[in-house]
Lab assay of single mutants.
Amino acid sequence: TRVETATETAWISLVTALHLVLGLSAVLGLLLLRWQFPAHYRRLRHALW
């Protein structure tokens, strides 16, 4: 049971790290898009909202 718990903890930390990385890359990508294509971003936002 001790090994299982350790594996579970490792998986949880791995998944958390993955989610953090994905979230950060998504935010960075959005910022980059907004910085590179302001007109396109505004049009996209206008279409979405």
Rank of each mutant, 00 (worst) to 15 (best):
A39G: 15
G23F: 15
T1N: 08
T5M: 07
A17N: 00
L30V: 11
R34Y: 06
A6W: 04
L44A: 10
A6Y: 04
L28Y: 07
W49E: 01
R43V: 09
G23T: 13
S25Q: 10
F37D: 07
A39L: 15
A39K: 13
H19S: 02
I12N: 06
A47L: 08
R2T: 13
V21G: 07
L30C: 14
R34G: 06
G29H: 00
R43G: 07
S13W: 14
L24V: 10
L48H: 00
L44C: 12
H46Q: 12
L32W: 09
L33S: 03
W35P: 12
V21Q: 01
L44E: 00
L44D: 04
F37G: 02
L33E: 03
L33C: 15
A6S: 14
F37W: 08
A39S: 13
Y41W: 14
L33G: 05
A47M: 08
R2L: 12
T16I: 14
A17D: 03
L22Q: 05
W35S: 14
V3F: 08
G29N: 01
L18S: 01
L30Y: 09
T16Y: 05
Q36S: 15
V15G: 03
I12Y: 08
V15Y: 01
S13R: 10
T9H: 10
T9Y: 09
V15F: 01
R43E: 07
A10L: 04
L48Q: 06
A10F: 01
V15L: 09
T9M: 14
S25K: 03
T9R: 12
A39C: 06
G29S: 14
S13F: 14
L24D: 01
T7W: 11
L33I: 11
L33Q: 05
L30A: 13
L24W: 07
L28Q: 02
R2M: 14
R45H: 06
L28H: 02
R42Y: 14
V27R: 04
T1P: 07
R45T: 06
W49C: 05
L33Y: 06
T9V: 12
V27T: 12
Q36N: 15
T16W: 09
G23K: 05
S25V: 13
V15I: 11
L22R: 01
V21N: 02
V3Q: 00
T7S: 13
S25H: 04
W11V: 08
R2K: 11
V15R: 04
A47K: 11
F37T: 03
S25G: 04
R42F: 09
V27C: 10
A17I: 12
L32S: 09
T5L: 03
L30T: 09
T1D: 08
G29V: 14
L32I: 07
R34A: 07
T9P: 15
L24G: 05
H46N: 09
T9S: 12
L32N: 05
W49T: 05
Y41D: 03
V15A: 09
A26N: 03
I12A: 09
I12S: 07
T5W: 00
T1G: 07
R45G: 05
A26T: 13
W49K: 07
S25N: 08
Y41A: 15
L28K: 06
Q36H: 15
T7N: 10
W35Q: 11
S25P: 04
A6R: 11
R34D: 01
R2V: 10
T9W: 10
L32T: 12
T16N: 03
T9F: 10
A17K: 00
L14A: 05
H46P: 08
V21F: 13
L20P: 02
R42D: 13
L20Y: 02
L22T: 10
S25T: 14
T5R: 00
V21E: 04
F37A: 07
A17T: 08
L18I: 05
W11S: 04
F37P: 02
F37H: 09
L44Y: 07
T16D: 01
T5P: 02
L48E: 06
V3E: 00
L32Q: 05
H19Q: 01
L18A: 02
W35N: 13
L18Q: 02
R42K: 13
T9C: 06
L14E: 00
L48D: 05
L22A: 11
L48F: 06
R2I: 10
G23N: 03
A39D: 15
W49S: 04
W35R: 15
W49I: 06
E8L: 03
R42E: 13
V15K: 02
L18W: 10
R45V: 07
I12V: 12
V3L: 11
L32K: 04
L44W: 08
H46F: 06
H40R: 10
L24H: 06
T7G: 09
L44I: 14
Y41L: 10
V21I: 10
T9D: 09
A10S: 12
P38Q: 14
R43Y: 08
S13T: 15
T5D: 01
L18R: 01
P38E: 10
L48P: 03
R42I: 09
R42G: 13
L20A: 12
S13N: 09
A6G: 13
E8P: 09
F37S: 01
T1E: 11
L14C: 03
L28A: 04
H19K: 03
W49N: 09
E4F: 13
H19Y: 04
H40G: 14
T16S: 10
A26C: 13
A10G: 11
T9K: 11
W11P: 03
T7A: 11
Q36V: 15
L28R: 03
T1C: 11
W49R: 03
T1H: 13
R2Y: 13
I12F: 07
L20S: 07
T9Q: 12
H19R: 02
W11Q: 00
W35K: 11
R42A: 12
W35L: 13
H40W: 08
L48A: 06
R45W: 02
R42P: 02
L32C: 05
S13L: 11
E8M: 00
S13V: 12
L30H: 06
A26Y: 05
T16M: 11
G29A: 15
E8K: 06
H40D: 05
H40T: 09
L22W: 03
A47C: 09
L32H: 08
E8H: 05
R34T: 09
G23V: 14
R45P: 03
T16L: 11
Y41C: 15
L32V: 14
A26V: 13
W49P: 00
A47E: 04
A6P: 07
S13E: 03
A10E: 12
R42T: 15
T1S: 12
G29E: 00
S13G: 14
R43A: 11
A17R: 04
R42H: 10
I12C: 06
Y41T: 11
W35I: 15
L14I: 10
T7Y: 13
A26G: 11
G23I: 15
V15S: 05
E4G: 10
T7K: 14
T5A: 00
R43I: 06
V15C: 08
S25E: 02
R42S: 14
T5Y: 05
I12L: 11
Q36W: 14
R43H: 08
R45C: 06
L30M: 14
L31A: 14
